[in-house]
Each structure stands twice: as C-alpha cells, then as structure tokens.
Computed example of a mutant assay.
Amino acid sequence: MNDNQGCASSILRGRRPIMALLDLLGQKWALRVLWELRDGAMSSRALRSAAGDISPTVLQSRIHELRDAGIVERVDGGYSLTPLGLELSEAFMPLYRFAGKWADSLEREPR
C-alpha cells in the first residue's frame, strides 16, 4: 500500500466517500481555506490574512487535513489546490450562486 492509499483509508474509515468529504469540509475553517485558494496559490501568511480570525495553529491543522485528503498541496511560496481541489471548488459554484439567491430572499421576506 502506498502513502496515498494509507491516507485515503484513514480519511474514509469505513464511511461512504460523501460522508467522509462532508466531515472533512465541515471542520471549522476548512471551507474558508478551500474558498481562499480557489483563485491561486497563497502563502500561509496571506491565507491567514484572507481568512480573517483563523489562528495559525488551526490554519496549519486544516491545511494538513486538506493535504492528506489530496485537496491542497504545498507549492513554491505556499499552498495551492490540487487538480482534485480545483474540481471540488468548481463543484461548489452552484451552491455559492444558490446561497446568494437564498440570502437575497431572506432579506426581502418580512420576519
């Protein structure tokens, strides 16, 4: 078994892939890291600045988890999405557009 297979096994832990992915992305700040890297590589410092209040420890933890999952990779000068990470980022675009419509509808509706 190579390192990637071992990592995949530890991430999946007998779960269905969709559940494992949602668990990974449900970690605090994971989606924010994915979102900030969608337009290209960023240094750890730039990523932390773009993400707002994320602590350096939590940022490194999320990066480590996303790297283990094959979504983020280390590149010269920082971190970038892998081809799989880019595909995942694109998969979120319909949800992003829906979220905008949903937010608009909530603002129009009287409470």
Score class of each variant (00 low, 15 high):
residue 2 N to E: 12
residue 2 N to D: 15
residue 2 N to Q: 13
residue 3 D to K: 14
residue 6 G to I: 15
residue 7 C to R: 14
residue 11 I to W: 04
residue 11 I to R: 01
residue 12 L to E: 05
residue 15 R to D: 08
residue 17 P to Q: 05
residue 17 P to D: 03
residue 18 I to V: 11
residue 21 L to V: 05
residue 24 L to I: 01
residue 25 L to F: 03
residue 27 Q to H: 11
residue 28 K to C: 09
residue 29 W to C: 06
residue 29 W to M: 04
residue 29 W to P: 03
residue 30 A to C: 06
residue 30 A to K: 04
residue 30 A to M: 02
residue 31 L to D: 07
residue 33 V to H: 01
residue 35 W to I: 08
residue 37 L to A: 00
residue 40 G to L: 03
residue 41 A to R: 05
residue 43 S to N: 06
residue 44 S to D: 10
residue 47 L to M: 05
residue 48 R to S: 07
residue 49 S to V: 13
residue 50 A to Q: 00
residue 50 A to W: 01
residue 52 G to N: 01
residue 54 I to F: 06
residue 54 I to C: 03
residue 56 P to R: 06
residue 59 L to G: 01
residue 63 I to P: 03
residue 63 I to N: 00
residue 65 E to P: 06
residue 66 L to C: 06
residue 66 L to P: 05
residue 67 R to H: 10
residue 68 D to V: 12
residue 68 D to Y: 08
residue 70 G to Y: 03
residue 71 I to S: 06
residue 72 V to C: 00
residue 73 E to V: 07
residue 73 E to H: 07
residue 76 D to L: 14
residue 78 G to S: 04
residue 80 S to C: 09
residue 81 L to N: 02
residue 85 G to N: 00
residue 89 S to T: 02
residue 90 E to V: 12
residue 90 E to H: 15
residue 91 A to F: 12
residue 91 A to E: 13
residue 99 A to L: 11
residue 100 G to A: 11
residue 102 W to P: 07
residue 103 A to G: 15
residue 103 A to V: 14
residue 103 A to S: 14
residue 104 D to S: 12
residue 106 L to A: 11
residue 107 E to M: 11
residue 108 R to D: 15
residue 108 R to A: 15
residue 109 E to F: 15
